[in-house]
Design a binder for these strands. Structure first.
Length: 283
DNA sequence: AGACAAACCTGTCTGC
DNA sequence: TGCAGACAGGTTTGTC
């Protein structure tokens, strides 16, 4: 489900929890990715009684910082994960795995809740300033919103990689945050064929792709992310970007470039659906 | 190195 | 109406 724009949308809508204190932690016993349930002991030690000082994002990971312990709750939403701020008197959504009760703020008491039906998500604890030591973050690449991903960097990253560009974009060790929707979108924006080998990218085309990645992600972010099925932000609202997608999930439909009469095609690369216009994304 | 499949899970949609 | 099968925004692991 969630790629960088969706995760960043969640991060922004989590702003109201900054400054609140954690008064209680509840966890389910169902295993998430990695085969283990959320560790109540670890999450409790990191957060109980502590004040939330910030909510950060790196690629598709969220970090909820706690002031007194200098620890962070590390969350990856997987495919169907949701992180919501909900009134404490509301019933738990199905497949809820973590509930953090929060004090402070105005109005009724609120919880921070994580739910995830498919259980591909991750909830863990990292140490502030030493995020890299957490195995999930150890190999994570540059963030295309908070870091600079320009043509120069992309050109450098693609040297020595003979994989298809689409596959390269999905590799979180290079650029962190691009997923299956925005990989297709960025390649269309840059007029590049998804099957082009990464190391064949010219400097000029590396510039175009770098610009496209940034533009596609920022545009999706402006619309609050893409909700095809499950995604909602921390307030429970869906994103609007599905109405603005250029190619994703548009097989058989007309290319949206005004000067192109191509028909969007779908194929499978690396076991994932790739959408492109064979006419304007040419070699 | 990289392509591919399968695995982890549940929910939803399609076609018979 | 019901049921089997395909498929889904992510990532890891194993095989060839």
């Amino acid at each position: 489900m969630p790629e960088l724009p969706e995760v960043e949308t969640v991060r922004r809508t989590l702003a109201p929890i900054v400054g609140r204190r954690v008064t209680k932690v509840w966890t389910s016993r169902l295993a998430l990715r990695g085969g283990k349930p959320v560790s109540k002991r670890k999450v409790g030690a990191a957060s109980m009684g502590a004040r939330i000082s910030d909510v950060r994002r790196w690629g598709k990971y969220l970090l909820v910082d706690f002031e007194q312990t200098q620890r962070s709750l590390l969350v990856h939403l997987g495919m169907t994960g949701r992180l919501r701020v909900i009134r404490s008197d509301q019933e738990h959504a199905p497949h809820t795995h973590l509930v953090m009760s929060l004090s402070g703020g105005r109005g009724a008491p609120r919880d921070l809740r994580f739910s995830d039906p498919r259980r591909f998500g991750i909830v863990s604890v990292a140490t502030q300033g030493r995020e890299r030591e957490h195995p999930a973050l150890a190999k994570l690449g540059v963030d295309p919103i908070t870091d600079t991903v320009d043509g120069e960097l992309l050109y450098r990253l693609t040297r020595g990689s003979r994989r298809a560009l689409k596959t390269f974009l999905l590799d979180q060790r290079a650029i962190a945050g691009v997923g299956n929707i925005y990989a297709s979108e960025a390649l269309w924006q840059a007029r590049l064929p998804p099957g082009l080998r990464a190391h064949r990218l010219s400097r000029k085309r590396a510039e175009a792709l770098a610009a496209a990645v940034g533009e596609v992600l920022r545009r999706a972010l402006e619309h609050g992310g893409t909700s095809l099925r499950d995604f909602v932000n921390a307030d429970g609202h869906e994103g609007e970007h599905s109405h603005y997608l250029w190619v994703y999930d548009r097989e058989g439909e007309a290319c949206k470039r005004s000067d192109c009469s191509g028909i969007i095609r779908r194929r499978v690369q690396q076991g994932r659906a790739t959408f492109s216009c064979p006419r304007c994304q040419s070699k």
